[in-house]
Each structure stands twice: as structure tokens, then as C-alpha cells.
Design a protein around this nucleic acid. Structure first.
Length: 564
RNA sequence: GCGCCUGUAGCUCAGGGGAUAGAGCAACGGAUUCCUAAUCCGUGUGCCGCAGGUUCGAUUCCUGCCAGGCGCACCA
């Protein structure tokens, strides 16, 4: 597609007083393929030349030189519409996909640059709820998107393994703890203790004080506190890794908040040395009133550090350690202010790279009656969701394709794929109302829809005798074939835009479009039954679709079973 | 009160300042001697929250208002 775009720019730039950059920006995709592949709007020229845009469009069409890239260039109202040479488009697109394979769509513009992505970051000793799914799958997808652009990616799971909550947990465990229960179902049990702590603390505020004291002890290296903390952390991490394994998510680093414990004093000293810190109401803060922000708290009255302190410390450490050109924080939109404060403090400290830190926010998962709360115990466990989705997928397989080998495995791919896709298919900024019926719906705009298209293609390719064979993609000129080809040609543009806007949803939408275009084609055009030349061209086409679906689903962190 | 985000079909949502605003779900009707019917085709629905502004052109950008969500000092 790029080569066609460049050709349009080349053709127009001789006739139009606009620089090539601006020209390329102005090019549009017409609303319907009947209007061509590229459109150049003449409104800007109309102003410059003080002439009717439609007249300019007509004029341009007459004076444009010929090019074998386009089979037709026509004026339609104020637009000049370019129709790609169908044979050439089909031929280059299919050839590119089939020769590049998994690499199709990838670019190299990030070569030599490092991007740090901070995502998932569940809290130790709390169950992995559906709320954490968002950060995990969005972050994972961004990781893969930036890899596809050639960046060196570092995925960091900034575990919530430090903070006052451990004081609470230690108090709760020492008061009501049961060794055997902990052994048996660590996370669930720790969760129970956590919920119990909060309900009891409402009656007895002294518990909160005790919790704060124990966290202080933990921070000061108290052996008893430390041992309990280590135990909770190890048990939790084991369970998290099981979930990540189900989701197919990996990290380059599990350095959580606790990792920075030893460096915190140094960070606070540094901020003080720069004259940015002050005491307010007994706490150590960075005043941000100049920036119109509430103060950033570095130390509580009791001297213990806070979330912001650790994030500042971590950012500085990561810059030194990874020398990133960009760092993404995939964290809920409810923490927007926090990141604004942290980034502002970094800026005040004189770090120019602060501007390369980006908060990638997303909406909350909510119930009909409100936000999910770990404290109140109104949490849906992610593992339950994954299990139910997998079971449902298995039932459907049992019904539709009882002879399938590997049912278990495929059911997991489909069920979990559906859950991931459900999260990724809409703009991340929107809140999601958690609804079992929707999570467990596999029809319409879902992962199974895309996976099914892929499985069908694989099935045809399996049945095709004497394939691969030489093919002539220039035969792919009918409407259904061209629709598919045009979409396939656009893949790398979509990857670029999705990465640039941090929106995996664009890939999800794209992959739906490709699957839909294929399904239309499938019902309209026979492949195996077609006369030989056409058969081979269509086999090449669907093989290309298969590859793009695999690559696209991969970018979302979803697998593509060959049968389902 | 201040700040950030959201408002598009009955529901859930797409929509790169541009041409006639689109999907899925739900409803109804059709398609399988043929490559997986988890599919496809058809039927209709919109003061694009409201009011101004910028622009040749605004669902898209700006301002104000309304509604909902979130946040605003010792939680993360």
C-alpha cells in the first residue's frame, strides 16, 4: 500500500503547491471502495487558487501524468479519486505476505531504541481479579505492537509487593491466621484475611494503627515481619504465574515495589538536595501548587514512604538501567493524577526524559452497582472467568465438532481468546460493565469469530492437493477478492497507528474486518472447486489471509487454532 | 467546589476535520446435495447530550452548559 501512496504523492506533487509531507497527510481513504483507494480533497487548493474545488479536481485529472500503478484516476465532486491497479495491488500484497510470513506488517523504525512497559502489577496477597486483566492484556499487546515496530521492549511487572497493606495482612494473620488454610489456598485465604481486617477495623480503629506500625517495622527490616512478607509474596507469585501462563503473558522483570526499598532514602535525599521537598502537616512533600497540582507526598508523618516515592525511585532507576526512549505505564485512569504528579516531580528534578514517560490509562471494570472493591470482597476472580469461558468453548466444540482432537487445548485457546478479545476490542478508555452474559457470548464481534475464519482457511489448505503451487495473484480482481486484498495491504498502517495511539483495539477491529471480508469471499467464491488457475490464486489469497489473522491475533495475545 | 474522562440506533459499541454516520447484539425472513452454519445474505432505526464558536466543511477541534464515571494529603 505504501508504494501506491508514494506514487500518488509523486504524481500530485508536480502539479500542486504543497510539500510532500502535507500532501501525504491530506490523502484519504474514500468511504467506499467504489470510489477508489485514495482520495485527494481539493478544498485547500480551492482557497489558494480561489477556484471551485470540483473544477480543480477535474482539472487535475486531466493534467495528471499516466502511471501504471493506477487503472483509473477520476474526479468525483471536489475529490480526485485514485483506483489502484488491481493486478499490481493483489500481486505485490500477496507476494509480500507469503514471503514475509510472520514478519509481515513489521517495521524497523524502532531499531536500537528501548521502550519500557510497566503493566499488570497485581497486588501481592490479593487475588488476581478481572480488574487486573485490563492492564495485563493491554500491556501485553502494546509490548508486541512495539516489538513489531522494531523496538527493544522491556516488560516490567511492577508487583504491588510493598506498602501499608502488608501491615494489615501481618496484623490479620497474627491475630486470626491459620497455617493449614494458608498452605491449602494461599491467595483465597489471604484475601479472606484482608477483607476481615477491613470489616473489623471499622469497629476497632486501633487495628489500622497497628497495621501502620507493622509496615514501618517491615520497612525497617524487622525479621518477623520480613519472614511473613516473603512467605506471602512467594505464594502469591506462584499463583500469578499460573494465570500469566494461561494468558500467554511474559515479563522481562518482576521487580516490584519492594525492589526499590533500599534506594528510597537515596531518592528522597536527592529530591531534598534539589530543594524541592518541604514539610507540611508533619509529612514530607513536594509542593506542586505552581503547577496547579496537589502536593506529592514522599513520607508520611511516621516517616514511611508512599506509592509516589517508589514510583519516582523506580523511574530514575529504570532510566539509568535501561536508558529507555519511552516508558509506558499501563495503569487505570483513576490514577491519572498520581502520574501527573510523579512526572511533574521528575521534571522539576531536571530530568528531561520525564517527557518520555507516558501514562496509558484505561477505564475501570465495574459492576452494575459500582466499582469493584478488593476490600469489600466484591471481586470476580479472573481464573473463574477463564475457566467458565473455557468450559463453554468445550461445550460448543462438543456440539459442533465432536471429532476434534485436542479438545481441551482448543477450548482453552478459544475461551481465553474470547475473554482477552472482549477486553481489547473497545477503546481502552471506556469503562466496562462486567457482565457474565457478554463475557460468555461467542457470536458476533468476538475472538471466536476471527478464530473460526482462520480455522476454516486451515481446513481448506489441508484439503488442497498439490499445494503450494505456482499461482498468479493478478487473477484476484473480483469485488470480494479485492476487498480482502485491500484490507490485507493495510495491515502495517494499522499496526503503526495502534502503537502510536497505544490502542490495541484498532488491531482487534482490523482483524474483525479481515475475518468478515474473508467470510463474504468464502460464501461467494469457491476455492477448491474453482478452475485451476483461479484455484491456485485463491489458495494463495486465503493463505495470505491466514497469515495476517495469525499475525494480528498474535499482536493481541490470542492464539489461532487450526481446527475448532 | 476544582480537575480528568465519557455521552453516536432499543442495548453494547466502531468511526484518521471531509463524500450517503456504520458494525455487533436483539427482532423478523432467507441460504447447507458444495471448502467447518461459531458462517453468510436480506429487512430499519439516528436533534451523533444541549448551545454557541473556529472552518470552504464539525459526530470529530475550541468554549460554556447538562448528565454519568473517576480523582483531589499520609491507600495503591
Amino acid at each position: 500500500m505504501q508504494m501506491f501512496r508514494e506514487e500518488v504523492v509523486r504524481l500530485l506533487s508536480d502539479l500542486v503547491q504543497l510539500d510532500k509531507q502535507e500532501l501525504a497527510m491530506d490523502l484519504e481513504t474514500p468511504p467506499s471502495s467504489e470510489m477508489g483507494d485514495f482520495a485527494f480533497p481539493c478544498f485547500k487548493l480551492a482557497k489558494k487558487r480561489r477556484q471551485n474545488p470540483a473544477a480543480i479536481a477535474a482539472d487535475l485529472v486531466n493534467t495528471l501524468p499516466c502511471s501504471n500503478y493506477f487503472e483509473k484516476i477520476e474526479a468525483k465532486g471536489p475529490y480526485v479519486n485514485f483506483f489502484c491497479n488491481r493486478e499490481l495491488l493483489a500481486n505485490t500484497t500477496i507476494k509480500n505476505i507469503l514471503t514475509q510470513g510472520k514478519a509481515y506488517g513489521q517495521q524497523t523504525l524502532g531499531k536500537g531504541k528501548t521502550i519500557v512497559i510497566d503493566f499488570s502489577a497485581p497486588n501481592i496477597a490479593k487475588p488476581f481479579g478481572v480488574g487486573h486483566l485490563r492492564s495485563t492484556v493491554i500491556g501485553n499487546s502494546l509490548y508486541r505492537l512495539y516489538q513489531a515496530l522494531g523496538y527493544n521492549c522491556v516488560g516490567i511487572n511492577h508487583l504491588g509487593d510493598w506498602g501499608t497493606q502488608f501491615g494489615k495482612l501481618i496484623v490479620a494473620y497474627m491475630q486470626w491466621g491459620d497455617e493449614r488454610k494458608l498452605e491449602k489456598q494461599p491467595i483465597t485465604y489471604l484475601y479472606e484475611l484482608y477483607v476481615r481486617f477491613h470489616s473489623e477495623a471499622e469497629k476497632d480503629p486501633r487495628l489500622d494503627e497497628e497495621a501502620r506500625a507493622w509496615f514501618k517495622k517491615l520497612e525497617d527490616g524487622d525479621a518477623e515481619a520480613r519472614a511473613l512478607w516473603q512467605r506471602f509474596r512467594d505464594l502469591s507469585l506462584t499463583e500469578f504465574k499460573r494465570i500469566y501462563n494461561l494468558l500467554g503473558v511474559e515479563f522481562d522483570s518482576y521487580q516490584g515495589e519492594s525492589f526499590y526499598n533500599e534506594m528510597l532514602d537515596g531518592t528522597v535525599d536527592l529530591i531534598e538536595a534539589k530543594g524541592l521537598a518541604s514539610i507540611s502537616e508533619g509529612a514530607l512533600i513536594v509542593d506542586l501548587s505552581e503547577e496547579n497540582l496537589p502536593p506529592c507526598l514522599l513520607r508520611k508523618q511516621d516517616g514511611a514512604t508512599l506509592y509516589a516515592t517508589r514510583d519516582l525511585c523506580a523511574a530514575i532507576y529504570r532510566q539509568q538501567h535501561y536508558n529507555f526512549t519511552k516508558m509506558l505505564y499501563v495503569v487505570g485512569a483513576d490514577q491519572a493524577l498520581h502520574f501527573q504528579q510523579v512526572f511533574t516531580v521528575l521534571q522539576k528534578m531536571g530530568y528531561e526524559w520525564a517527557e518520555n514517560c507516558v501514562h496509558v490509562p484505561f477505564g475501570l471494570i465495574r459492576y452494575k452497582d459500582g466499582k469493584m472493591s478488593t476490600r469489600r470482597g466484591t471481586l470476580v476472580f479472573l481464573e473463574d472467568v477463564l475457566t467458565k469461558a473455557t468450559e463453554l468453548a468445550k461445550e460448543i466444540i462438543q456440539e459442533k465438532n465432536p471429532g476434534l482432537a485436542n479438545k481441551e487445548h482448543v477450548a482453552r485457546q478459544v475461551g481465553i481468546g474470547a475473554v482477552i478479545f472482549g477486553d481489547l476490542s473497545n477503546d481502552r478508555i471506556k469503562n466496562i460493565e462486567f457482565d457474565w452474559d457478554k463475557v460468555l457470548d461467542f457470536t458476533g464481534e468476538t475472538a471466536p469469530y476471527v478464530q473460526y475464519a482462520h480455522a476454516r482457511i486451515c481446513s481448506i489448505l489441508r484439503k488442497a492437493e498439490s499445494w503450494p503451487a505456482p499461482y498468479d495473484a493478478t487473477l484476484l480482481t473480483n469485488a470480494e477478492e479485492q476487498n480482502v486484498v485491500r484490507l490485507l495491504a493495510r495491515f502495517s498502517d494499522v499496526i503503526f497507528r495502534a502503537a502510536q495511539t497505544y490502542k490495541p483495539s484498532l488491531i482487534a477491529r482490523y482483524v474483525l474486518d479481515v475475518a468478515a471480508a474473508f467470510n463474504s469471499f468464502y460464501h461467494q467464491c469457491p476455492v477448491l472447486q474453482a478452475e485451476e488457475a483461479s484455484r491456485n490464486a485463491r489458495l494463495a489469497l486465503i493463505d495470505a489471509v491466514r497469515q495476517v489473522l495469525v499475525n494480528g491475533l498474535y499482536l493481541l495475545g490470542i492464539s489461532a487454532p487450526e481446527e475448532m
